[in-house]
Design a protein around this nucleic acid. Structure first.
Length: 309
RNA sequence: GCACGGGUGGCGGAGCGGUCAAUCGCAUCAGACUGUAAAUCUGACGCCCUAUGGGCUACGAAGGUUCAAAUCCUUCCCCGUGCA
């Protein structure tokens, strides 16, 4: 009962500002140069829930054309911020790219900080196939959290046992699914790749220093103008705020809700908090090989071993 | 100098005799995660312990009143405002 071997892939993850994008390109170039085990090419697939959007460049820290150094990148600019984009769409998109790359014997390097996006692909999440139902959501939104939970208990007591009963967003989604299905079964997962997972986790002090410097750099690079332009292009401030971090606080500043100083201070603090949430997610994956800086020298041996295996 | 107002846990800010180690917000720490995931949500948060309980130190400082004080009184020290 031998199963076909899983396709190989490299995953580069870590908190924001840890240096993932550069490392991913370094790895791709390394593979291209050494032609290890039939892989003469490599491409990067971004796993970032904000870089998918067109026009989200500086604020989202999207890699520039020059920084790509000739390595193909996928998962960038694939959606309009005017429309909703979800994990499910990301998953479908990425799987399509992956099979395309496999046919070309190009090694995929999935690189990003959105843990859910990575795992949805790496573990083949079987997500409920129920699309967002805005009308229903609007209706449910009016109910109290307690009431939502009671409704869920009634419709699917099993799901109710494991859900976070305080989390309205989850409760509403669960009820949305149950609007079209009888029950919600536990999330099905299965490993999709033979993956080398590299996690970059600098010390908090170094990471915080980088976050600070990067924020100032983004401001100089025209982050405020970028958000202004997005708003002029038709994105409401409310919508911009819903994207969080850079887009949220710059939008608040542009509306005069906070001063520039407050914007910078709050944003920096929120980014730090975000990196902690990211790490909380990553920590539950046992298979990550952690390094404390985005330096390819630290992983060359692992790479070669992995690819020749 | 006089008159008011105020000094509370890392910060902001409640409490104004007992149910107060002290509402709440922020920060911090830890965690969750079934199509919004940069989102959403939870827990801990004075110190110590044999920890759904016990002990110790606490509300500017020092005294005092009381069975009992962050809460009342006295003095002192600081801060803000008004009058000199």
């Amino acid at each position: 009962m031998s199963q076909p071997p899983l396709p190989k892939a490299i995953i580069v993850l870590g908190p924001t500002a840890s240096g993932k994008s550069d490392l991913a390109v370094d790895i791709a170039l390394f593979i291209k140069k050494h032609h290890i085990l039939g892989f003469s090419n490599a491409a990067v697939i971004s796993a970032d829930s904000r870089q998918v959007y067109k026009g989200f460049n500086i604020g989202a820290g999207k890699i520039t054309h020059t920084e790509m150094r000739g390595i193909p990148h996928y998962g960038l600019d694939i959606a309009s911020p005017k429309r909703r984009f979800t994990v499910s769409q990301y998953q479908r998109y990425t799987n399509k790219i992956l099979s395309h790359l496999t046919k070309q014997h190009t090694l995929p390097i999935i690189c990003g900080g959105t843990g859910l996006y990575i795992d949805s692909v790496l573990y083949n999440y079987v997500l409920p196939k129920v699309k967002p139902n805005l009308a229903l959501r609007e209706k449910l939104e009016k109910l109290s959290t307690e009431k939502l939970f009671l409704l869920l208990i009634k419709k699917d007591p099993t799901r109710a046992r494991t859900i976070d009963k305080h989390n309205r967003r989850r409760l509403i989604r669960a009820l949305e699914i149950l609007h079209e299905q009888k029950t919600i079964s536990p999330l099905e997962k299965s490993l999709a790749f033979n993956a080398l997972i590299i996690g970059i986790n600098p010390t908090q002090q170094i990471l915080y220093t980088k976050i600070h410097a990067r924020l100032l750099k983004r401001l100089h690079a025209g982050m405020i103008a970028e958000v202004k332009k997005l708003h002029a292009g038709g994105l409401s401030y409310a919508r911009l705020e819903s994207f969080g971090l850079e887009y949220k606080y710059v939008a608040q500043f542009l509306q005069g809700k906070i001063s520039k100083q407050e914007m910078i201070a709050q944003l920096e603090q929120e980014i730090k908090k975000y990196t902690k949430r990211q790490m909380t997610w990553f920590k539950r994956n046992e298979g990550i090989q952690w390094i404390n800086q985005a330096n390819i020298g630290l992983i060359k041996k692992n790479l070669i071993t992995f690819l020749n295996k």
